[in-house]
Each structure stands twice: as structure tokens, then as C-alpha cells.
């Protein structure tokens, strides 16, 4: 598992991380989500032991990253951002080097390298020079290197950033599969990535952890009031007053008009119940024909933006 307790880090006068605490259990894929400069990379670097925290502690697989640094690193597989590799080495040569560095016994080395190459689908380029590979292949070689010693904890910084769409799907499947038995922390600024890949999202901004939970929980907690979309044949413009009269409706606005058909967006008030049934009844009562009435669930993107705006009002004003 990964356990961060009150970690803080400053660079000169800039406070990059301010008292971040969270724990990721085995069997979880957690996504560390935040805009550029949020403190994601610093947090990742503290967890991997690359940077020491000014305050707080980090445990990786039960080992303190400062007191039992080498043991913590032995239990960690790390893919840094942009997967930096040695361009002059061959793929298999690089993996052999990493296997030796992690102290994998010679009798297990061939099997470990073969398994990592198979998992990351890089057997076809095993003899190629790393510097001659596409960025997508380099990313997968970096991932294979992180998996070589079969670590119980994986930290992956932007693992799909350079991959083409089919590779992204394959890599997500691989990470999900790895996350069944391991603790996986994925850093990303791509919301869709975290939504599809992670069982848990940690939203960070300004060096502070703003939210922590499953994507569904975060949407429920921070997604804001419920919203609905309605498409109605409304020549007499009766729909809007009818909807406004429904208890719990906070706002109604026209999104699109196409001939007699109008598309309306409805925003419910805070703590309003499900309004689909009373709205359907109100529209029927007003003689408005409806061809669509559906709830529009908030997305993780909505949550992300709401949290960022709440944390930084200047951003809200700018938006």
C-alpha cells in the first residue's frame, strides 16, 4: 500500500505540496488528478523517494521511504513522466540492466524480462535501439522496466501520454489488470483517463488535496445540483413557465431551437429530489409534447472544475 501522512514540500518560497494525506490500498488504482503546477509531480517524487518531504511521512508497502528507503524502493515500480531511457541501449539490454539493478537473480532474469515484454507487447522490438523507437514504444519499454521485479506498488506518471488510441486502450487494460492485486497510483491531468481507469480519484490543486473518493462518490459529493435535458415541441412557449412552476427547479434555459422543437436545460435546486416525474407531469399538463426528458449526470470534469473554482476564486472570475 501507499500511505502519505501530512507531506509538505517547498522550493524556496514556493509551497509545492501542503500537508497532503491519503492512503491507497492493494487492489486499488488511484488517479492523482490536477492541473499543471498542482503539485502532482512533487507528490509523486516524494512517494518514490526522489525528493524528501519537508514534513510528513510516506510508507510504501509498509516501509518508510526515508528510514527504510532501499526496502521501500525494492517494493516500488516507477514509470517517470515521459519514460526517460538510455537511447543507445537495446530494449532487451536496457531491461537486463534494470533487472540486475533490482537484484533479480540470474536464473529468474530471462523469465522476468520475457514476462514484462509480453505484458507490455514489446517483444517485436526487443533487439531495437531505444533511441530508434517511437514514443509509444518507449513508454511501453519504461512500463516493462517498472514491472520487471513484480513490485506490489506501482507509481505511473502519465502512463498513456504518448500512446495512440489502440495502445491507450491496451495499456489501460494492463493497468487495470495490474491493479487487481497491486497498489497502483497513476498521475494524470486527463480527466477521462482517470474516470475510465481508476477506482479512486485524488484531486490536487495548489499543493492541497481537494477531494478523495471513487469517481461516483466525487460526482455525488461535489457534482453540484442535478441537471436535466428536455426536448419538447413547444410552439406556444409554454414549457418554460410550466417547468419553473415545478417545486425544486432553480433555472431553465434554452440550449437549442430547431423549428418547433426546443432543447431546454434545467438545473435543480440544492437538495432537490429527482424532478423527472413532476416535470413530465407539468409539461403534459401544459400540453407540451416531449420526445426526450433525461437527467444529465455531472461528470468528473464538472467536479474538477467546481473544486478548482472553489479553491481559487480568481480562476472562477477569469472563467
Amino acid at each position: 500500500m501507499i500511505k502519505a501522512a501530512g507531506i509538505a514540500k517547498s522550493f524556496g518560497r514556493v509551497r509545492a505540496v501542503r500537508g497532503v494525506s491519503f492512503a491507497v490500498e492493494p487492489g486499488q488504482v488511484a488517479g492523482l488528478l490536477g492541473p499543471n503546477g498542482a503539485g502532482k509531480s512533487t507528490t509523486i517524487r516524494i512517494i518514490t523517494g526522489y525528493l524528501p518531504a519537508d514534513e510528513g511521512t510516506v510508507q510504501v508497502a509498509g516501509f518508510d521511504t526515508r528510514r527504510d528507503s532501499l526496502e521501500a524502493r525494492r517494493n516500488l515500480g516507477y514509470l517517470p513522466e515521459a519514460a526517460p531511457l538510455y537511447p543507445e541501449m537495446s530494449v532487451v539490454g536496457f531491461l537486463r540492466y534494470r533487472a540486475r539493478l533490482f537484484g533479480i537473480a540470474p536464473r529468474d532474469r530471462v523469465r522476468a524480462i520475457g514476462a514484462a515484454m509480453e505484458r507490455c507487447r514489446i517483444e517485436a522490438v526487443r533487439g531495437r535501439r531505444v533511441g530508434h523507437l517511437s514514443r509509444g514504444y518507449r513508454q511501453r519499454v519504461g512500463l516493462a522496466a517498472a514491472l520487471l521485479h513484480d513490485p506490489p506498488v506501482l507509481v505511473l506518471d502519465e502512463p498513456t501520454s504518448a500512446l495512440d488510441p489502440s495502445q491507450v486502450v491496451e495499456t489501460r487494460e494492463l493497468i487495470r489488470d495490474l491493479g487487481r492485486t497491486r497498489t497502483v497510483l497513476v498521475s494524470s491531468h486527463v480527466l477521462g483517463e482517470v474516470e475510465r481507469l481508476c477506482s479512486r480519484a485524488l484531486i490536487i490543486a495548489g499543493g492541497t488535496l481537494l477531494a478523495d473518493g471513487t469517481p461516483a462518490e466525487l460526482v455525488r459529493r461535489h457534482g453540484g445540483p442535478a441537471r436535466y435535458v428536455i426536448e419538447a415541441r413547444d410552439e406556444g412557449r409554454k414549457a418554460e413557465p410550466a417547468l419553473r412552476a415545478v417545486m425544486g427547479v432553480a433555472a431553465v434555459r434554452e440550449e437549442r431551437a430547431d423549428g418547433h422543437w426546443r432543447r431546454l436545460g434545467v438545473e435543480a435546486g440544492t437538495d432537490a429530489p429527482d424532478l423527472r416525474e413532476p416535470m413530465a407531469a407539468a409539461l403534459a399538463g401544459a400540453g407540451v409534447a416531449v420526445r426526450e426528458l433525461s437527467a444529465r449526470p455531472a461528470s468528473l470534469e464538472d467536479v474538477f472544475l467546481r473544486l478548482l473554482r472553489a479553491a481559487d476564486p480568481a480562476r472562477e472570475n477569469a472563467a
Binding site: Y50, L70, R73, Y78, P80, P84, Y86, L101, F102, G103
Partner: peptide
């Protein structure tokens, strides 16, 4: 090149 990060986060002093 950034390879130092991978090197010093491996179990090597």
C-alpha cells in the same frame, strides 16, 4: 535526460 530519476529511485544508494 531524466534517467537519473529512474536510477536513484531504484534500490541503489
Amino acid at each position: 535526460s531524466g534517467t537519473l530519476e529512474a536510477l536513484v529511485t531504484s534500490p541503489v544508494s
